[in-house]
Amino acid sequence: MPWTVLAHPPDTLPILVVALAVEAAAGYPDGLYRALGHPVTWIGRLIGALDVGLNRGSARRRRLAGVLGLLVLIAVVGGIALAVGTLLGLAGPVAGIVLAGIACAALPAQRSLHEHVARVAQGIRREGLPGGRAAVAMIVGRDPESLDEAGVCRAAIESLAENFSDGIVAPAVWIGVGGLPGGALYKAINTADSMIGHRTERHEAFGWASARLDDLVNLPASRLSAGLIVAAAACHRDASATGAWRALRRDAGRHRSPNAGWPEAAMAGALGLRLAGPRVYGAVRVEDAWMGDGRAEAGPADVERALALYRSACLILFGLAALAAIVALA
């Protein structure tokens, strides 16, 4: 069987359907993580080695080294994923698609994102503000000690919206486009941005290429994720699709990120909240526009409302993937 069977549509669309279904049902099993780790941790080790080996010298040299490191990362991850996809394709048309879908299930994070955000609401309800701060520290980079209860809840909802885009929708888009190689390459680029795409003294030059490429590959998913949140809001009585659409059109482009503002604005408008705005990362205060024009006083019930929207948006995404697979294979 030629390798192209698993590397482009229409074959990649049923792979996506299998991946989303398997990951939603089982997540990434703890036993498998303990035994083998996770693709993101493997990618992270390679990025760390490239950082140590290449990130030195003048700013110009660091920027060029960052471009080289990104190319090495893409070549290694893409090559391995393509080889694995080719081997899986040898199992036959149906078995190859199922096996590739199971392999791709490691790339989106529907289940783990839901669990981490749900722990914030649970932490506040069970242990008050300290419990919420401890839980939100696992999913955001800002200083949790600087957050009151409303700030903790807003941070959790913002993380849910942003990670819905780059942790679920974006991997789904790139799996649908390129199967296992497409999804793996996206995760490599996104992980590189998470690790080295920061405006710090060490990484501003070296991580420049990774940050810019991550912005580019997330453009389609950020827009799609916002649309999915609007559609999900239309399915819930305590959410507003009209408010989501209005906030999206007005506020998404005002966010400091070219992508994060889209799902955050849609989520804010759907829930009648204000999200983003000025916040503190470490000792650095980041000035950003507010998404939405509702209330800033969010609580654990709002986190749970956001999770309900998230579940519906994931279900709509799965439905679109299934419909696309049916049409493509008809």
Results as ranks from 00 to 15, higher is better:
175 I>G: 08
121 A>V: 06
281 Y>K: 15
327 V>W: 13
186 Y>M: 11
87 L>F: 10
205 A>H: 11
324 A>T: 10
279 R>L: 13
16 L>D: 02
125 R>K: 14
183 G>D: 01
184 A>I: 03
123 G>L: 08
313 A>Q: 00
54 L>P: 10
301 A>P: 08
49 A>C: 11
261 G>L: 02
45 R>T: 11
327 V>H: 09
90 L>T: 15
29 P>H: 10
125 R>Q: 12
194 S>W: 00
205 A>C: 08
199 R>T: 11
131 G>Y: 08
6 L>A: 04
127 E>M: 12
101 G>I: 03
201 E>D: 15
267 M>Q: 04
170 A>H: 05
184 A>Y: 03
241 A>Q: 05
304 E>C: 02
108 P>H: 00
45 R>L: 12
162 E>T: 03
64 L>M: 14
163 N>D: 06
303 V>W: 04
20 L>E: 08
38 H>K: 08
298 A>R: 03
112 S>D: 15
243 G>K: 01
70 L>S: 06
286 V>W: 11
57 G>I: 02
112 S>M: 15
131 G>T: 06
150 A>L: 05
258 P>W: 07
201 E>A: 15
60 R>W: 14
242 T>H: 14
13 L>A: 12
16 L>K: 05
67 V>R: 09
63 R>C: 04
325 A>S: 14
264 E>N: 08
243 G>H: 00
263 P>V: 05
183 G>R: 00
118 A>P: 11
189 I>N: 08
64 L>S: 13
55 N>R: 01
44 G>R: 05
234 A>E: 05
324 A>N: 09
179 G>H: 00
298 A>M: 06
59 A>K: 13
102 I>V: 15
143 D>M: 00
211 A>V: 14
107 L>R: 01
286 V>Y: 09
326 I>C: 14
36 L>H: 09
303 V>R: 00
54 L>W: 10
216 L>A: 14
323 L>P: 10
96 G>H: 01
51 D>K: 07
256 R>A: 15
323 L>Y: 12
48 G>H: 10
307 L>I: 12
328 A>R: 06
199 R>L: 14
174 W>N: 03
159 S>E: 05
70 L>H: 12
307 L>N: 06
208 W>R: 13
5 V>N: 07
26 A>P: 07
264 E>A: 04
258 P>H: 09
103 A>Y: 00
79 G>N: 07
127 E>V: 08
130 P>S: 11
233 A>G: 04
141 G>M: 11
153 C>M: 07
223 R>E: 03
330 A>I: 15
141 G>E: 10
215 D>Y: 08
266 A>H: 04
179 G>C: 01
279 R>K: 15
221 A>V: 02
15 I>Y: 02
169 V>A: 14
55 N>Q: 06
11 D>L: 13
119 R>M: 14
159 S>F: 03
127 E>Q: 13
252 A>G: 14
196 I>A: 11
259 N>R: 06
243 G>P: 03
146 S>H: 09
19 A>H: 07
55 N>T: 00
261 G>Y: 02
175 I>K: 07
61 R>P: 11
47 I>H: 05
163 N>H: 09
135 A>V: 10
288 D>I: 06
326 I>V: 15
244 A>P: 01
262 W>Q: 04
